[in-house]
Amino acid sequence: MRKLPPLTAIVAFEAVARLGSVRAAVSELNVTQSSVSHQLARLENHLQVQLFQRRSKRLFLTTAGQDYFKTIEPALDSIANATNKEMMETKRETLSVSAPPSFIVTWLLPRIDGFLPR
């Protein structure tokens, strides 16, 4: 069994590290500043290492934080790329048909299989 850190904490960490601020991460993730701060603390507790140094209301990546970011960023890029690829391959076109019920029942329904991809 994999021992993964909380994925929401990784997402928050990656956003803060990449964007350089909690405020920018909050805007991108559409969550509260408190939520991001809690996720960062949760990840630091899980890893038992300090990822950020806090100085005068600013966060700076520690050496451990920089190393962790460099390691997880390609993994998250791979997940994003795989997700985008899958979504493009399974993209389906939708056709909406509006017709009188009598036409749908007598003509369309018996032929609907011919319209479906195989």
Rank of each mutant, 00 (worst) to 15 (best):
S56D: 04
K57Y: 02
L61C: 06
D77K: 15
Q33V: 13
K57L: 08
P74T: 06
L19D: 07
H38Y: 02
V16Y: 00
I10N: 05
H38W: 01
D77C: 11
R18N: 08
V36K: 05
A25L: 08
A12P: 01
R55Y: 01
A17Y: 05
T62V: 06
L59Y: 06
H38T: 12
Q39G: 02
E44H: 03
V36R: 05
T63G: 05
L43P: 01
V36L: 07
E44V: 07
E73R: 15
E14Y: 12
P74K: 12
K57N: 13
V36G: 06
T63F: 00
H46N: 08
H38K: 14
L76M: 14
L29T: 14
F52Q: 03
H46C: 05
G20N: 10
V22Q: 13
L43D: 02
S56Y: 00
S34H: 09
R42H: 06
S27Y: 13
L59P: 02
R54I: 12
N45D: 14
R54A: 04
P74Q: 11
L51M: 04
L47Q: 05
R23Q: 10
I72W: 01
I72E: 07
A9C: 01
I72H: 09
A25G: 11
V16C: 08
R58H: 06
R42A: 09
E73L: 14
R54C: 04
L19C: 07
L59C: 02
E14L: 14
Q33R: 15
F69A: 11
E14N: 13
Q48N: 15
D77N: 15
L61F: 03
A15V: 09
V16E: 03
F13E: 12
V49L: 09
R58N: 13
L40Q: 05
R58W: 00
E28A: 10
V11D: 07
L59D: 01
R18S: 14
G65H: 05
A15I: 08
A75P: 01
N30Q: 12
V16L: 10
E14D: 07
Q39H: 14
Y68M: 04
L61H: 09
A17G: 05
L29I: 15
Q66P: 02
E28W: 05
E73A: 14
A9I: 08
D77P: 01
F13T: 10
H38D: 05
A12R: 08
K57G: 12
L40I: 13
R58T: 15
R23L: 03
A9Q: 02
E73V: 12
I10L: 15
A9L: 07
E73P: 00
L47E: 00
